[in-house]
């Protein structure tokens, strides 16, 4: 209990002091001591983030090894994940060692595999998103017909139909442009301003050492 209290105090003091130094540094000249200090801290965060990828990879392997060991539902997919992870690492090592011969000599096979598998899979999923969204709009109306839902659906229909390159559809195209330029843009800005203000108020709580989410 005492150890936890000490950790609490230590983490709070660290957050308050480093937070204040960063804020003061960002508000000062970049060449000033405070500015340089803030720049150093930001670089330190970037370095930690890069190193933390290793933690992520270890977690990924641990989660899927655990699923295989306990033969949890869907464990064969976890096996595929592990085999794919090992294969990528092996390919990368061979690439770095320039170990390919024949037609593959000088090639970066890991990059080619990445483009052939991941990029095409992501593109396919991206294509599916349109259908998910249209179905979601249909489901929205089935769930509850409110003024806002009708407005949302009407905007989607106008924007989608407005993109159809047919003759005599200029008027609808103009409506689409107006919708995107005025109400959609205003709504988006409103939401983003709200998010910004929310960030400031929580940030102040963090600087005061009153946010408990990071404590040990």
């Amino acid at each position: 209990m005492r150890r936890h209290r000490l950790l609490d105090i230590l983490s709070t003091v660290t957050v308050i002091s480093l937070g204040l130094v960063t804020v003061i540094g960002l508000l000062s000249d970049r060449d000033s001591t405070a500015g340089e200090m803030a720049g150093f801290l930001i670089q330190l965060v970037a370095l930690i983030s890069a190193l933390a990828v290793l933690v992520g990879i270890v977690n990924l392997l641990a989660v899927h090894t655990g699923r295989i060991r306990h033969t949890e539902y869907g464990w064969p997919y976890s096996l595929i994940v592990l085999l794919a992870a090992v294969a990528v690492v092996v390919l990368r090592i061979i690439d770095r060692a320039e170990g390919w011969s024949g037609d593959l000599e000088g090639e970066t096979v890991s990059l080619r595999v990445f483009e052939a598998v991941q990029v095409s899979l992501e593109s396919a999923l991206m294509g599916l998103l349109v259908f998910f969204l249209v179905y979601a709009a249909y489901r929205l109306m089935r769930r509850d017909v409110t003024v806002w839902n009708v407005l949302f659906l009407a905007a989607i229909v106008v924007v989608l139909v407005g993109w159809i390159p047919l003759e005599n559809m200029d008027a609808l195209g103009d409506v689409r442009d107006w919708l995107v330029r005025v109400p959609v843009s205003a709504g988006a800005r409103g939401i983003l301003i709200g998010v910004g203000l929310g960030t400031v108020t929580v940030g102040v709580r963090v600087l005061l050492g009153q946010d408990r989410s990071y404590r040990g």
Binding site: A137, R139, L192, G194, V195, T201
Partner: peptide, 21 residues
């Protein structure tokens, strides 16, 4: 914004903008 629009269409309950904070 794009995630918020999708959330509005799909979720049974949605939090908008600063409501999370």
């Amino acid at each position: 914004i794009e995630g918020q629009a999708v959330a509005f269409a799909q979720a049974q309950q949605v939090l908008i903008g600063e409501e999370l904070y």
